[in-house]
Amino acid sequence: MKDYSISTGNTKTVSQLDAETKRKNRNSLLIKIFIWIMLILAAGICLLPFYSMLITSTHTNADITRKLLLLPGDHFIENYKRLVEVVPIWRGFLNSLIITCSATAIGLYFSALSGYGFSKFDFKFNGPLFAFVLATMMIPGQLGIIGFFKLMNMFGLINTYWPLIVPAANNAFGLFFLKQVADSAVPKEMLESGRIDGCNELQIFHRIALPLMTPAIATLGIFLFIGKWNEFLQPMIILFDNSLQPLPVMIASVRNQFSVDYGAQYVGIAISIVPILIVFALASKKIIGNVMAGALKQ
């Protein structure tokens, strides 16, 4: 643009300038429309599988096998009945909620506790221990899985929720995240004034530090919740009773037990997605904001 304007120099008339801006505007409008179309197309492709899933779940197996389905059918209830006769999917939902909520609560509390501990107390080996915590983040989750299974069996904890919930207290990422938060959001002076008021250290943490860290804890909470909700391998090997299993394990067993019944399978995955969709629709601004905030802190 620059070169052009120089070469034409001051010979450019007002009308020429006008035409140029018009053309420029037209060009950029075309580009904008093109980008818009691409965006909407991408969004469509992104949502298509979910649409297809919902539609397909309302048809008979014969139709699923034979036809391309674009519109809702009327067999959802039948498919659903076959599914819940064998797999207690809502029970799985409840189980998932129980496991995820307690693990998230424990994870948040202890991450805050230890993050605060590392941030505010200058004990011996603070540095090395913190480095050690960071190093444990590099250990892949599956490394100890066989020993974990065998040890939990020895402790008599197999087929209980303890091995799924208690280890949440040991979340290196959460600790790291909340230590940074405590570093910046909790001023030492406030702690001192708490001490002067005669609070003990735990009370100071509960009454002063924890409220100050709450926004960050909420952010971390979303990460922990999603992570726990989606966990699959551990509950699969730890829990045997159908009535105890969380949703992902049940979905996997739907796949095994309804290998031929596609209608029931579609209903199963639809049931696992729709509540998430609703929660997400209600809280998407918050969730996305938190993910972006969390992404920056990392």
Binding site: N159, M236, D241, N256
Partner: peptide
Amino acid sequence: VFPGDQYQTKLMTAIQSRT
């Protein structure tokens, strides 16, 4: 009744711990 693949593991762990 323990439907699905979990049954075998369930049985083995019970037998291992003899409880």
